[in-house]
Simulated scan of single mutants.
Amino acid sequence: MNIANHFSLLFVLLSCVWTHTNARFRIIGGQYINIESSPHTVAIVGNRNYYYCVGSIVNYHSVLTAAHSVKNEILANLKVLAGVSEIRSTFKGEGQRHKVENIHYDPDYDPETLFMDIAVVKVITPFDLNSAVKIIPLCDIPAATDSDMEISGWGGTVINSDICSPLLKSKIVKIADGQQCRDPISNTLLSADYAETIMFAGRSGEGICFGDSGAGGVVNGKLCAVAQGGFEEPDYPDLYTNITNPKVREFITRWM
């Protein structure tokens, strides 16, 4: 069954239009930050810096993002922008621009249910680490319910709008009780395997929005989750891939 048909699940869009003229479009409830405050965060863009999604640097050649954002894209058209707070900055020679060599997906990835919605993007040239470009370590254990999780990206603030922010922004959200969140849907939509690969945080109207696919969820300085999408249901939390899950972690480790 397609999740969208049952719950009106509004998955974060793969890409969006960004603008200088309307600076209010940002992560819902978030604030603008400099890239030095979230130096693992990168933008994955296409030709002419057309913005697709967010990613996180996990080693010198690897970025974690959401599979649904980059699946079937032409590798030669993709670039990873690192070390920039503003996407247009690379036109001015700021930050780093890396060509993509390959993208790895789990063979069990399902675009309908977003099972294993995780991808490892490999860049050709290594990231040049500095105060604005840093590798983030991965969480070793699941984050506790009610923990603060920070998300950063260039997404929108209004549901059903495709306008994204040219400026980086950030938001602290609370990790939700996964079992409680799964109860309304697990009997008909989620297999046990799928349920263990996801986690929930924030709530509808506060957190990730269009263009924030792939945004890293950071707890105590470590990457614990990758943004998938959000629900239209009132007060229902956003959906993330849980990278501490053994199946997810094995895939990441294999291709990093």
Rank of each mutant, 00 (worst) to 15 (best):
E86T: 10
P166H: 10
T188F: 12
E112Y: 11
F91G: 08
G211F: 01
Y60F: 08
Q31D: 12
A82D: 04
C164F: 04
V84I: 15
H40N: 10
R48V: 09
D177G: 07
Y60R: 13
D193H: 09
H104M: 09
I27Y: 00
I103N: 01
S15D: 12
L189E: 07
D140S: 13
I28N: 02
P184I: 11
D238E: 15
D110S: 12
R203I: 06
Y194P: 00
L129C: 07
I124V: 15
N102G: 06
N2Q: 13
T113D: 08
N102K: 13
G153N: 04
V121D: 02
W255F: 15
S191D: 08
I124N: 13
G229N: 05
F115E: 02
G207D: 02
K79Y: 07
S8M: 11
S56Q: 05
T197K: 03
A119S: 13
C209R: 01
G205N: 04
A43D: 04
Y109H: 08
L189N: 05
V12N: 06
A132T: 15
P142L: 07
L223F: 02
D177R: 06
F11D: 03
A192S: 14
E150F: 12
W18K: 04
T145N: 12
G30D: 00
F251L: 04
S85G: 12
T113N: 06
K247D: 04
P237H: 08
N34P: 05
Q96C: 04
N245E: 04
A192I: 10
T19L: 14
A176E: 11
G205F: 01
I3H: 07
R254A: 14
P246D: 08
P234Q: 10
T41R: 03
V226H: 02
I141K: 13
N2M: 12
V45P: 00
D140W: 09
D128F: 07
V70P: 03
I27V: 15
N47V: 15
V63G: 00
L223Y: 00
N242C: 08
C224M: 03
N2P: 15
T188C: 09
N47P: 04
A66R: 00
A23G: 08
L168K: 05
G55S: 07
D128A: 13
S89L: 06
